[in-house]
Each structure stands twice: as structure tokens, then as C-alpha cells.
Design a protein around this nucleic acid. Structure first.
Lengths: 201, 201
DNA sequence: ATAGTCATTGACTTTTAGTCAATAATATTG
DNA sequence: CAATATTATTGACTAAAAGTCAATGACTAT
């Protein structure tokens, strides 16, 4: 990487850092592009070298933490199904909590924004998470942990809805409950019940 | 109601009708206030007699169908807990489906929009739904359908998350599954499992 | 009949997202 | 090393649309 590329990377990093700070503090609608560029110490136009729309910086901000989860899931081959799912749920909500309410709020709003093309990476995150969860369940069926007739498709949808629902509800409640608390309780008390009919002991 | 009041009511109705049609067809971001007022046959300024912000018309549009559910829940006193919950879930998702994806998308986006004051009716819908569900569960405990040590708070959160999550995921998936289908499957296959430990037979 | 109320209007203001031609700093080529 | 090409940066500018408001006039109340 040459000098120019390094400088460019550094500029983007500065924008993301400034954007994240302002976003956490004030929320997306209360800041404008110039606030971000001023804080980053660059001109307004520079923002648009790195992001097509004002909204895109939010997607970029949240991509890193959530991206890590996928890698971890790959490495969980040995674990039992319940533990795998518990880990996945906990890690997801950990990211939610560390991103903070303003970022999660805006992320959800962006993903629901039809102005984002359907092939937008973040609009597809949902489908990606569905696949990830489906794989976890399917491999449990293969390994003989779950019965052959387990309705994987249905369970996947229910679990993903629960996960995204917890995030959405947390934002809607203005952060009035602890996401990690509820997730842990959900996993320890409800996950087994939901899989009860399908688990082979 | 006098002539003037009637005319005003009619104007608002025209705006809501026009807004709903355009919203369903094109989505919130692809229409502007003037599109709505033109379709309704009034001037742009008139919009702001009835709605403080462009977004507010969406909240008004969706309020009617969802409002009906609360009234129905009042009248379900005789039913068993599972049937009550099933009815509630089905009705909720019926509203989701009949409002359509663009309205639900924008409604969720609005409720997550910090620009709406915390005392905004629609931002409080979530808390209201939590209360409604909590009441259903609590009255089942009182009636002896559920054990005294049922973790009502936790179950309420889990169920609400599932409900809102299904709506959110439906929107995120671009309507790739049938909300009513999934809800019915969820209710018939999972609801009992989730309450299993707490139901007294 | 008169005064008062209030929905309606559309031109106007304001805000801000997003553009773009000019510039300057770096990289490439011969 | 000089000449040329590339590309990140800049900030003034444009575009679009949300939201305002003083003037109007149709209706209501007394």
C-alpha cells in the first residue's frame, strides 16, 4: 500500500470514528454531513468520496462488529446445538449493546429504507443471518442431535425473528431493558423448550 | 358536527386516503408532501393543518387497524391462554399484512426515529402492547391456568420480541414469506412448548 | 348585519443532501 | 529527472423538498 492509499484509508477511518462518536452522542437525524466532516477535519465533499449517501456510514460502522460473529460460528463445530445457539444469540446482542441504541436504531431504519438497493450488503444481512442459523440447525440434524423431521425452516424463522425482535424492541423501548440479560434468560429458559420435541438425548 | 367541522374531517380523510394509496404503491421516500396534497386535491399547506410532520400521516394510517385489536382483547375473557395468544398474534399479523410492506416498513422506521418525541403515541405503542400481553398472562395466572411462579415479565418480552421481530423480518426480507403462515405455525407448534413448564392441566 | 373563527392557499424560507470543476499532492512513465 | 497521468481533496454551488406564514374568504355565533 503506497502513501496515497494509506492517506485515503486514514481519511475514511477518521470519518468513521467521527461519525460513530457523533452518532452515539446525538443520533443520526440530529447531525448532518458537515458535522461529521468538521469533526474529522476534512471538507464536506470528501465524505462522498467514501460514502454514496449519508446513511451509508452507519452501515459501515456496524459492519465490523457483526461481521466477527460469522467467523466465530465457523469455529464452533464441536459444541452442542443449544450451546451454539446460545453463543450466537449472546454475541449478537453483545454487538447490539456495544454499538449503542442510536446506531442500532439507525441501522434498522436504514435496512428498512427502500432507497437502499435490494442488492445492498446490509439489506442482505438478514438473509445471511437466516442462512447461518439454518446451517447450525441442519448440521445438528446431520450429526443426529436433532430428529430428521425437525422443521428447520420454521425454527430458523422463529429464532431469527426473536433475535431481531429483541434488538428492535430494545430500541423501541428506548433502552429500558438490558439486552444481554434478556437474551441469556431466553436462552437458558426457552431455547430448550422450543427444541424439546426435536432433540435426541 | 357543523358544516365546517365536517369539511375539515373530510379533508383529513382525503389526505389519509391519498397518502395510503401513494404509500402502498411507491413507498414513503419516493413521494413528497405535494404528491399527497395534489392527489387529495388540496394545497400543500393544508397537509400541515392535520399533520405536524410528513411522517405523521403514516402513524395515522396504521393507527386504525392496530387499534381494533386492543378492543378485541378486552372481549376474550372466556378463552384459554393459548387461544388468546394465538388470536392476538394472528390479528396483529393480519394488520401487518393488510397495511402492506411499505406502510409497515415506514411505521417501524418512524417509531425508531428519535425525532419523534418520547411521548409520541406511536412510540409508546410498544409499551402498550407489552402491557396488553402482560395482562393476558397475568390474568391466566390469576385464573389458575398458569403456575404462580410463571415468569410473566420474561415471557411477555419474549413473545413481544417474536411478534415485532416477525414484522421487522418480513419487511427486511422484502415480503419473501407469508406473515400469517409463519404466525400460525409458530402458534400451533411453539406456543405450547414455550408455556409447557407453566401450564396447569 | 357584524364580528369573529379557522381551514385553506401557495409563494416563500430554510435546510441540507449531494454535485462538480478546479486544485494539489502523489504516482507512473520514458 | 522531467513530463504526464492519476486521484483525493476542496468548498462553492445546485436541487429538492420540508415546513412556514400572512392573506383570504367561507362559515359560525351573537
Amino acid at each position: 500500500m503506497n502513501k496515497r492509499q494509506k492517506a485515503a484509508q486514514e481519511t475514511k477511518r477518521k470519518l468513521i470514528t467521527a461519525g460513530l462518536e457523533l452518532l452515539k452522542e446525538k443520533g443520526f437525524d440530529s447531525i448532518n454531513v458537515e458535522d461529521i466532516t468538521k469533526k474529522a477535519g476534512v471538507a464536506k465533499g470528501t465524505f462522498y468520496t467514501y460514502f454514496k449517501r449519508k446513511e451509508d456510514i452507519v452501515l459501515d460502522i456496524s459492519r465490523a462488529p457483526f461481521g466477527e460473529i460469522a467467523d466465530e460460528v465457523e469455529k464452533m463445530d464441536g459444541l452442542e446445538i443449544i450451546d451454539k445457539l446460545t453463543h450466537y444469540f449472546n454475541r449478537f446482542m453483545e454487538c447490539v449493546e456495544s454499538c449503542g441504541i442510536n446506531v442500532c436504531r439507525q441501522w434498522t431504519r436504514d435496512v428498512l429504507d427502500p432507497a437502499n438497493a435490494p442488492d445492498n450488503k446490509d439489506r442482505q444481512k438478514w438473509a445471511y443471518d437466516v442462512d447461518m442459523l439454518k446451517n447450525i440447525l441442519n448440521s445438528a440434524v446431520k450429526k443426529g442431535e436433532l430428529k430428521k423431521d425437525t422443521p428447520v425452516e420454521l425454527l430458523t424463522h422463529i429464532l431469527i425473528s426473536e433475535l431481531y425482535g429483541m434488538m428492535t424492541c430494545w430500541c423501541m423501548s428506548d433502552g429500558k431493558f438490558e439486552p444481554l440479560d434478556w437474551t441469556e434468560k431466553f436462552c437458558s429458559l426457552q431455547l430448550k423448550a422450543m427444541l424439546l420435541h426435536y432433540i435426541i438425548k
